[in-house]
Design a protein around this nucleic acid. Structure first.
Lengths: 358, 358
DNA sequence: TTGAAAGCGCTAACAA
DNA sequence: TTGTTAGCGCTTTCAA
């Protein structure tokens, strides 16, 4: 807590105490001094002074003047999810390495929130925006467009800006196929023994469901509509769907495809209410990877979306001059049960891990 | 992608087209017009105009002039972790509900990064800062102090600013006790059958380890130093510790306390390398809660830290005038195995979950 | 009830 | 090689 502080030094302060004009000081301190042909000695003097006085630029002033802020935004649906939080992790590292300032926000999959938040980011004059998993990418696009804000869609594509998304059809295909093959190890599989839960009417869910149907039809024959329940992205609703199924059939489906790790949390809620026996023989697929889920006490195939590649690609598009409006697909990976993958935290150094006893 | 756009409207534009002075327009548009006794009619006129022209304030300009930005920061160690990402989730919601703009950043538990990032936030004139899990809270404090930035420590306490932290001793006590009781269900427990992995030389780890020792001594007698291995906060290092133990003893400890979910990920890496039999009879405690981990195929007791309460308390301290420099403890909860708790995502509406088939 | 004017800290012509 | 100056868009006295 604080208050007592003397105000921060400005270029004028440094100008006065050095007897050098503000514009020269400015040039030195913002790095443009070489091309302004300022004497090395002058520069050094000013830098020394700045150092001594703990000078740091007022970025609001700089931003106001130059109408750019150095801020790069990432708009997420939610933080509290390994897929999106790993995106945030990669995003931060990559943006910071370019000397810009990353700012991560979440809009809770609410189109109004999305719009408002983007408006507010624009009010702060952010320079670029990565829009991840937006419910209304094209609406957000219009807002960005109007403000002249460069933006790219990630995870969920829009039709009006470049997009980088997981190849959801391919992922859905891999997952469904792995599920069926695994189920067959325990005997023949009837079409109504394989279900799908979770997701809603967005591009990703549609593609995954399309793949699910195609593979299922090819491998098992028909696919009753009752086998597909997009319960939205909420653990609670998904849990209800499992409960309802269980109430009706006295058991869970032998095999099922869960649309995301958020929906998979719904399965955990179901499990908490039932003894182990209730799911002794199930085979599950989840379109998302989570390191703990992978070791759950039933075969769980997961799809790992390549968050790092998506962020990298998204940022590279942002730095392109006139990127074509197209959708880039990023290949996902099928992760077999009991697999512990490396994540963004592994890139971190952990210098002073204590090996002695405390 | 965009470029073509006409510039955003300013109060001057509105002033010109309305024939009303900029200062009046300003007052109307920033909400101070009632106390400036501006006529209702004037206000309405300007608001209508602003609406029509899609006016929104330039927050950099406002911030520059008023030397506050409306930005509130949350500094995290990492994003990619359920404990911290749920903090971020609660933080966003609460800050936004006050009309301010939340900005979440991570510093990777690197003191230099922490300092730099805070400096850069200060350059953007953020108004308040919540410092979560900082490696060097007091160093960060000094920087904030110098800039007159209000700040509070969360999760890891500092000695120079108010702090809100989990009652780590109590959590450690609950967890160790639950572990021992559960182990005893399978027969008598010797002191060297209960171990601790993970954490490093920070306040949280020290408290947890202290509790571990106290409870262990009280319930089991001695506690050989070799039973405690603070491996830092890295999945990789922790996995190595498990491997080393396994190599030496031909098995994992019968029971062990894992210092955080990040360390627990190290256990997953170990598990991936070994058959189920290698851990058929283990009992584990983890000082963090994760909904998937709770259902792993061995008894796993977890400690849930109350991220929501900590954020709430932290923000309330920030809005206090001269908060005393003290540490507030937040009670954690022991979560028995196979428990699916509600999280921040449950507060979200999921309006258009699709119940029909696509 | 409203307007004029100064200035927040910085950048970028243009002059010197 | 450096200095002068005019703003960026907004808030805020002070005066009318």
């Amino acid at each position: 807590m604080t208050d007592k502080t003397k105000k921060k030094a400005t270029i004028y302060d440094l100008s006065v105490i050095s007897g050098i004009s503000p514009s020269t000081v400015s040039a030195v301190l913002n790095g443009t001094w070489r091309k302004r042909r300022i004497k090395e000695a002058t520069a050094e003097l000013i830098q020394k002074l700045a150092e001594e006085h703990g000078y740091s630029a007022n970025l609001q002033a700089r931003g106001l003047r130059s109408s750019r802020s150095g801020l790069v935004g990432l708009l997420l649906p939610v933080h509290d999810n390994r897929y999106f939080s790993s995106m945030a992790q990669y995003f931060e590292a990559q943006v910071r390495s370019t000397g810009q300032c990353p700012i991560v926000v979440s809009a809770c999959r609410d189109p109004d929130e999305e719009h408002q938040i983007v408006e507010s980011l624009i009010s702060y004059s952010i320079d670029e925006l990565l829009i991840a998993g937006a419910t209304d990418p094209d609406g957000v696009h219009d807002i960005c467009e109007r403000a002249g804000l460069k933006h790219v869609n990630i995870d969920l594509p829009g039709s009006k800006a470049p997009s980088v998304v997981t190849d959801n059809y391919e992922g859905g295909r891999l997952l469904t196929q792995a599920l069926i093959e695994r189920m067959r190890e325990q005997g023949p599989v009837a079409p109504d023994e394989l279900h799908l839960f979770g997701g809603r009417d967005d591009h990703a869910s549609r593609e995954r469901i399309r793949a699910f149907r195609d593979v299922k039809r090819a491998m098992l024959g028909g696919d009753p509509d009752s086998c597909i329940q997009p319960t939205g992205y909420s653990p609670g609703n998904t849990a209800h769907a499992f409960e309802a199924f269980h109430a009706r059939h006295g058991r869970l489906p032998r095999g099922f495809f869960v649309n995301s790790s958020i929906n998979l949390e719904g399965l955990m809620r179901f499990l908490a209410q039932h003894p182990q026996e209730a799911f002794a023989d199930i085979v599950v697929g989840c379109f998302d990877y989570d390191p703990f889920a992978s070791f759950l006490p039933f075969p769980l195939f997961m799809i790992r979306q390549d968050a790092e590649a998506m962020i990298t690609k998204g940022l590279s598009i942002l730095s392109t001059t006139r990127p074509p409006i197209m959708t880039h697909l990023v290949a996902p990976t099928l992760v077999p049960p009991r697999t512990a993958l490396i994540g963004p935290l592994d890139a971190l150094k952990d210098p002073d891990a204590v090996h002695s006893v405390l």
